[in-house]
Write a protein that binds this DNA or RNA. Structure first.
Lengths: 190, 190, 190, 190
DNA sequence: TATGAATGAGTATTCATTCAT
DNA sequence: GATGAATGAATACTCATTCAT
């Protein structure tokens, strides 16, 4: 049983898990996820040995999607501020346009089921972005911190911004930019 | 009245819930909470009719503790920056010194069990603080937002800062101040 | 603790039990009964040592009420048919006017909680009536049975008749008399 | 399909429910029923979604068995009295030979758990029998009632008769016939 | 490989009864 | 005697996981 047959089915399960868990939280029953995915209860376990494994894979999948969005159309040659703005814009719109995925990410982030190893793996993809942000930092005190700190500033402010965007959809773009201003100031962006 | 309902017991249950849920999440069994509180399984339900009610009360209790800490020794007459710094310092040290309470707050914040009404009630106490922060805002774009936005900037950055303080206890104070700098810059504090 | 103080309270409990059990069946919680009776949960147990005792007393009370109604205004000197008709009329109207009490009697009659001794005691009061009915029996085969058999014919037909009276309140009296005719024929009443 | 849901198992559960509930009433725990049926506690709920559904299905099963017995060997061409006697005989012997089933029917009949829809469905099968009995009715007043009334006279008297048959097994047949005489007279059978 | 019935430990909640006040 | 908080065994139902088909 090297790799299970259908990549499609694996994706269907992950998609179903996002849908169901956005509503029911990480306590959502695997049976409901299976039904939503259009497969039998038992089949889920040929793709994910345990529910915890599903949760961990899901965490990675969700973080992966976010990363993908942030790199999609990334203006590699552009000035720093523009590049960072691209990342910011992609982040908050990812969350505002796909609230289920984002809800699941929030829940899994604070869940005991996600292993430290998974968290590390999930963070790895964002190294580059963190470093880019760190480059923008002009505030002395913040320059002394690891790039992670700058990256974390972005995540936390972006996440907060998404909340406001979801609460007031008509002022979405306003919040997106207000959030960016706060973020850019926070790191003393040049 | 026979035996009056004991405030002590109520508090013991809430304390036990914090301890147990910090480890097991909101899915923690009420039986474990009762045992930890030193009471019978059934007794828990004379104080909280359902587990959901316990969760909602707990949310309020935890937010309340945080608010209390932030107002404890508050330098009412001091300059704005000092007052905001007091609030920040109290917030992040509350989280760093009582990680269980803080973990529970994080988990409940994203839990479906917390009713909107509870969230509103929990936020009310922080109005004053949000307004104080909003006063500090000098960035034009951010001035146009509600005080909530400023308050949310603080919460999200403080929360992120706590993570770093917990991960590197020896650099706790360093992170506390670095976080404050980022926050103060974010809102363009004067 | 010879006899508990208040006979009123005892009656309140029995009345409450009837009301609550008519809705919830014999599984009705004693706490609900106590609340309905306007007393504390624990007080119920100074009047009835256990729930089963309450149930048994209730059975007797309900049967007693029925018997009382049947003897109320009983035309002692009247011809047999008239006397039997009085009993019948009282029975079915008791059930039709107090459906809660009657529902409880039905439920307790088939409940495992009612002790044989209680059933016997409850039946004793009806000996006289059974004997009166037995006197009316003119059918040879039925004359050979114990008076109980004649009494049981009456109870079962009366109970059935009550069902119809409750289902069609506007035809109540019609059913009362139709039932009596069936009953009188059944025993070959002279 | 994997393992198909086994009709045998469903029947085993119903049989177990009859046995256990005859002793413990409708309050009998599902766990005891499952054990008696030789299955796991949880398995019961793959066959009956809730205990109430089990109760309702059981009601139908029990009524169905009774109806089956009444129609078994039914002398379709025979004179009316003989046909009615067949039904009566089958009814009371069903109850006398399978007291557990009959006890359960009594209990469920007065239970709040049985839905009106279930009662209607359970009664449908007996329409034909009620009509046959109604045909036998020669008493003017009873002729004006719906066939249900005649059917109800039979049920109530048969049920009473079963009680006597069970209490005095050696006089079983005597009571069967005495009961029939009463019944036949009640409806003024021709 | 896919299926879904079977499992049984686990969970929130109820409730008769006790007993401190 | 009256109260109602405390108790903990009992109960319906759930759910991750297994495994026969």
């Amino acid at each position: 049983m090297a790799r299970p047959k259908s990549e499609d089915k694996r994706n269907a399960i992950l998609a179903a898990a996002i849908k169901v868990m956005a509503e029911l939280g990480p306590g959502a029953p695997t049976s409901k996820i299976a039904r939503e995915a259009g497969i039998a209860e038992g089949t889920l376990f040929t793709y994910f040995a345990t529910k915890d494994e599903l949760l961990n894979q899901l965490y990675l999948e969700v973080k992966g999607t976010l990363h993908e969005k942030m790199m999609d159309g990334f203006p590699h040659g552009a000035p720093l501020r523009e590049r960072v703005h691209h990342a910011w814009h992609a982040y908050v719109h990812w969350g505002a346009l796909d609230p289920a995925r984002r809800k699941v990410m929030q829940q899994l982030t604070v869940s005991e089921a996600i292993l430290p190893a998974t968290r590390i793996k999930g963070a790895e993809a964002f190294c580059g972005i963190s470093e880019m942000i760190a480059e923008s930092v002009s505030v002395g005190m913040l320059r002394d911190q690891s790039p992670d700190f700058a990256g974390a500033i972005m995540s936390s402010l972006a996440d907060m911004t998404i909340d406001f965007m979801l609460r007031s959809p008509d002022r979405k773009e306003n919040y997106c930019e207000a959030g960016f201003v706060a973020f850019w100031n926070a790191i003393g962006g040049k």
